[in-house]
Amino acid sequence: MHKITTAAAGLCLAVVAGLAMAPSANAATPCPTGALCIRETNGTILDRNIFYSYGYHNLSNVIGKRVLVHNQTGGAGFRVCLGYNGTNCGNVLRWTGESAPYDMTPINSVVLVR
């Protein structure tokens, strides 16, 4: 009986944690086709966090865990960078769709690449 109670409590905790981390489908603002977007914690996307053009984009007040939404087309990718002006960047990412919540606090720019 103890194992069943423990398993049920763990399942409830996992469901609650998942709901707290991801915005609901109804509350989430869609990211336009051809863009990289950074979703706010409440599920919205601010105009200043929608990026279409290749090159670097400096971020302002983007801190905490955020969902990145990659809707670029044609195999385009992006990089997240610790420095401003696209410096000290990670690898090019080419997956499409939504990321798991990502800690954007140390990130100061993103770079869109072909």
Rank of each mutant, 00 (worst) to 15 (best):
H70K: 00
N42Y: 09
P106F: 02
V67N: 04
L82F: 14
C31L: 02
P101I: 01
A28M: 04
L13W: 08
P32R: 01
H2G: 13
D103T: 08
T29D: 15
V67M: 03
G74L: 09
R48N: 11
N26M: 13
G64A: 07
V80I: 15
V69L: 11
L68A: 02
L59G: 01
G77H: 05
Y84G: 13
K65Q: 14
H57Q: 09
A35P: 00
I50F: 05
V69Q: 08
N42P: 00
P30Q: 09
L112T: 02
L93S: 12
T96W: 10
Q72H: 13
N49G: 10
T5A: 14
G97K: 07
A20V: 12
F51H: 00
V62I: 07
G34M: 03
V16S: 12
S53V: 14
A14N: 04
L19Q: 14
V16R: 04
G55R: 08
L11W: 09
Y102R: 02
P32S: 06
V111L: 01
A76W: 08
R39M: 08
T6Q: 13
V15F: 10
G43V: 00
A35I: 05
V15S: 09
G83W: 00
S99Y: 05
G97V: 06
L93E: 14
A28F: 08
G90H: 05
G64D: 07
L82D: 10
V92H: 10
R79V: 11
C31H: 02
R39K: 09
N85Q: 01
F78V: 04
N88S: 15
A22Y: 12
G55L: 08
V113S: 06
C31W: 02
G64K: 09
S109M: 01
Y84S: 14
A20F: 11
E40P: 04
L59V: 05
R114E: 15
R39N: 01
P23F: 01
S24C: 08
P101A: 09
A22K: 10
N42L: 10
G75H: 01
N49Q: 13
K65Y: 15
H57S: 06
V67I: 15
S53I: 14
V113R: 00
G74C: 12
L36W: 07
R48L: 11
I107F: 05
A8E: 02
A28C: 09
N91A: 15
R94S: 12
T105R: 05
P106T: 04
N85P: 03
I107K: 01
A100V: 15
A76G: 12
A35C: 11
S24L: 10
G90M: 05
A8Y: 06
V113K: 04
R66V: 04
Q72W: 03
G55I: 06
N88C: 15
Y84T: 15
G18V: 10
